[in-house]
Design a protein around this nucleic acid. Structure first.
Lengths: 228, 228
DNA sequence: CGGGCGCTTGAACAGGGTCAACATCCGTGG
DNA sequence: CCACGGATGTTGACCCTGTTCAAGCGCCCG
């Protein structure tokens, strides 16, 4: 699923390459006019929204190769925040131009449809996790998922970075932060994983996979949808 | 957000109008080659997937005006099932042709992007609900959401149909079916709603809204995205 | 140095799950 | 027309998982 070189040239004309943002910086905020979608070149972002009662709900963690901002297409307004968890490089892609370009670049449009479809699928897997898994399974699933994504489709990284706080993990997984802390502690104590600062090492993949249990997923690994 | 009449004519050429399906019939099944997306003209569907351990996870309920099957775009294979909860009329739209048509019909393409974006947003709201709401809030939110959707963007229906079983509701909301039954019973006993067979009447909207509590939602009501 | 944030750990509590029994509805066939 | 069986829904009692509350530790950075 590659773009032709002429397609890439057209892309070059419109995207704003490698804008750098620091930890804590926001890519966009809720209520802002929707203008761009953003491809992550390197680093780590979280996206979240704020409920009426002021609580934060993390809707996703995003790393290199992924796209954020798609939820703004519908209303023309960003419906949440995207914020860097560490220094990151992002590409700003003006949706207006992308939309015009779309007609001429079939590959690009198809790619964008695939990315959105992929996000919908991912959300379905998330529902399964939030609804049917207990705390241990959630944590195990989360770690394996992160490991696979940091490996960029090349299987699993047995050693990878956990850039978010326990609070963020808890919020995303629908658990109390104490629960996350306890379970991660338990996994370390059982030597299923080990943690050094933000580095996680999976020491017993089989057991962790066992713990993760059921998943809906049916996606073809290896084939990652990217946009730039 | 209307299509021009020429656009509609082009659509007429490719869609298969008003195919009728009965309760329990499947529109598509997991693993089948992705060929069409489906617009619901009337009736009620549920979509769901099956986890490795064989458990069903309902990923959405869909009624007139909504689209199902989008999650197949990414892999070229349907990743779940869509099944009628009652006799329904659906339009089958061949994605292949729609994709070609896309180039010539800007409005249509934009519409499709909006619909997918809307679905992503909806999933984010769902996460908030599953993660942060307790059982009472989930039920209240679910009822209000259904009421609004059956009213097709014209505010709320105070009287509407609840076509799915308690088991389906429970599965979708991540609760035990006994819990759903208890809470619905409680709402009836407190005369906040009343139920006659499958008909629900909201008798005290203010209290039900209060119960539903926080939501992320930021969507413009009134403006519903449709495709046919 | 000190204060805040992130993280861990313990103890008590409760929301909702599980198990079990029973009621109700409905289609089917005798 | 009624009797049966299966699916659906209700209700009660008990108990477990994960939350809540509370205290304390380590670390970074001003």
């Amino acid at each position: 699923m590659m773009l032709s070189s002429s397609e890439i040239e057209s892309l070059d004309d419109i995207i704003q390459r490698n804008k750098s943002i620091e930890k804590g910086d926001k890519v966009y905020s809720v209520g802002e006019k929707f203008t761009h979608i953003y491809a992550i070149r390197s680093g780590f972002l979280k996206s979240y929204c704020i409920s009426e009662s002021g609580e934060e709900q993390i809707t996703g963690f995003h790393l290199a190769g992924e796209i954020v901002g798609l939820e703004g297409i519908n209303t023309g307004v960003y419906l949440g925040f995207a914020e860097a968890l560490e220094t990151s490089q992002i590409c700003a892609i003006p949706y207006e131009k992308l939309d015009k370009l779309n007609s001429s670049i079939d590959g690009l449009r198809q790619q964008l449809f695939k990315i959105m479809s992929q996000e919908i699928t991912h959300n379905h897997e998330l529902m399964l996790m939030l609804n049917q898994k207990n705390a241990d399974e959630k944590i195990a699933t989360f770690l394996l998922n992160l490991s696979a994504r940091e490996a960029l489709g090349k299987g699993l990284n047995l050693k990878f970075v956990l850039p978010m706080t326990r609070t963020d993990m808890a919020n995303y997984l629908g658990l109390a932060l104490e629960t996350v802390s306890r379970i991660v502690g338990k996994l370390v104590k059982k030597e299923i994983i080990s943690i050094d600062h933000k580095m996680v090492t999976i020491k017993q993949l089989d057991i962790l996979s066992e713990l993760a249990g059921a998943s809906c997923h049916f996606s073809h690994p290896g084939e990652q949808n990217k946009l730039a």
